[in-house]
């Protein structure tokens, strides 16, 4: 068979301390994200900066996900094929966000759409219906 003689890859035994380290990192990230969220909510002084919480929370989620996928799920130690399938779903899922194009563009076009106008299109605001 094509790959019959490779036996390193998947039967790689990862020492426990590696796992423990990752686990601790995950817990720290977890505490961090909750703390940031509470801070953003309670601290009025931050004011409009609270939208940063968006990026922080999602950034932390992605980091955590990556840690779990790479170490816990062993993708880091696996073959290219496994890596391919491990990320295929996520890549393809992001394709779905093409749908947003529709919702975004529908606002500023000749077809009467919904009424929100993205800032980018304000200069072309003369295309508004009812004119």
């Amino acid at each position: 068979m094509a790959n019959s003689n490779h036996s390193e890859g998947h039967s790689h035994v990862v020492p426990i301390p590696v796992y423990t380290k990752v686990f601790i990192q995950l817990l720290v990230l977890m505490v961090a994200t909750v703390a940031v969220a509470k801070l953003a909510e309670s601290n009025k002084a931050l004011g409009d900066m609270s939208y940063l919480n968006n990026f922080i929370a999602m950034g932390i989620a992605f980091t955590k996900a990556l840690l779990v996928i790479m170490i816990f799920m062993g993708v880091k130690f696996s073959t290219k094929l496994t890596k391919f399938y491990a990320f295929l779903g996520f890549v393809w899922f992001s394709l779905m966000f093409l749908m947003f194009m529709d919702y975004y563009f529908r606002k500023d076009e000749m077809v009467t759409g919904w009424s929100e106008v993205p800032a980018s299109s304000l200069s072309r605001s003369r295309v508004v219906p009812g004119s």
């Binding site: 394709l95 529709d102 975004y104 529908r106 076009e109 759409g113």
Partner: peptide
């Protein structure tokens, strides 16, 4: 094939650019 689904919706109020 995954990038063409919108052609079923040309007249279902899909945005022009899409």
């Amino acid at each position: 094939g995954f990038l063409v689904w919108g052609h079923h919706m040309f007249v279902s109020s899909e945005s022009y650019y899409q």
